[in-house]
Computed example of a mutant assay.
Amino acid sequence: MNTSDLKTKIQNLYQDILINLDIEKIDDYFAENYVQETDHDTLNLNEFKDHLQKLKDVVKSLSIEKFNDMLIDEQQRSIFLRYDVAVEKVDNSMGNIEVYAIFKFNEVGKVISCRELSKAYHEELEGLANI
């Protein structure tokens, strides 16, 4: 995958999975052996699906205005991102979470790992990134 392919893949992934919370599309983007580490908690693919379902239960909307930083390494098939997520919860509380994430892709273009650190700017959002 070249830089353009990786950039398109990550943008589509974020739209479908994080913004739309479309759990049905997870297998389109993530390998069966996917591992995610968020704030030092580790999840496998099924646990990641459970995490997204829990997010759907407590979140009304998520949005990302832009990626503040995006660094792509074609040889490593990896992407580093830094961004803020605007969150509106079903209880109408709102706030932002800052996220740093490194994604690694396999040779067929599916995500095999994500290492993520998050910082909620608002107390109401503490722990949401790894709910």
Rank of each mutant, 00 (worst) to 15 (best):
T38G: 03
N130R: 10
E88V: 15
L71Q: 10
E124F: 03
T38E: 05
L81T: 09
H122G: 06
S61F: 02
F103Q: 00
Q75D: 12
N130S: 11
V99L: 08
D16V: 01
N20I: 03
G127P: 03
T38W: 02
E98C: 08
I102K: 09
I97R: 07
I23P: 01
I17R: 00
A86I: 06
Y121Q: 15
L43H: 08
K119G: 00
T8L: 13
Y100M: 14
D22S: 08
Q11L: 14
T42P: 02
N130H: 14
F80S: 15
D5A: 07
F67A: 05
M94R: 15
K119M: 10
Q75S: 15
Y29T: 05
L128A: 00
E74W: 10
N12P: 05
K110Q: 10
M70P: 05
D73P: 04
Y34A: 01
K9D: 03
Q11G: 04
K54S: 11
A120Q: 04
V90S: 02
Q76D: 15
E116H: 04
Y29Q: 03
L21I: 06
N130M: 07
I64S: 05
E124G: 07
Y121E: 13
N20G: 04
D69P: 02
F48C: 06
R82E: 15
Y34W: 07
A129T: 12
D57N: 14
F105K: 00
H122S: 14
E123M: 09
I72N: 08
V108H: 05
V58L: 04
E126C: 03
T8Q: 15
I131L: 13
L71Y: 10
D27N: 13
F80M: 10
D41K: 15
S118L: 01
E116G: 00
I131D: 09
K66L: 06
I79H: 03
V108S: 12
I19F: 08
N12G: 11
K110L: 08
S93G: 01
Y83N: 02
L55F: 09
N33Y: 01
F67T: 00
S61T: 11
D50M: 11
Y14K: 11
N96H: 10
D69N: 14
I102L: 13
Q11A: 12
Q76C: 08
E37W: 04
K104N: 14
D57F: 01
V99F: 11
A86L: 07
T42E: 11
L125F: 01
L43K: 10
S118Q: 02
I26F: 05
K54N: 13
Y121G: 09
E124S: 14
I131P: 06
Q11R: 13
M70S: 08
K89V: 03
S78F: 12
K9G: 00
G95W: 07
T3N: 15
V111F: 06
N33W: 01
D28W: 02
G95P: 07
I19G: 03
L71T: 12
A101M: 04
T38P: 00
E123S: 09
K25R: 09
D27A: 13
E107K: 08
L13K: 11
F48M: 05
N106H: 06
Q36L: 09
L43D: 04
N130Y: 12
N46Q: 11
E116N: 02
Q53T: 07
M1S: 12
I17W: 00
L128H: 01
H40T: 13
V58Y: 00
Y34H: 10
Y100N: 10
L71N: 10
I72Q: 06
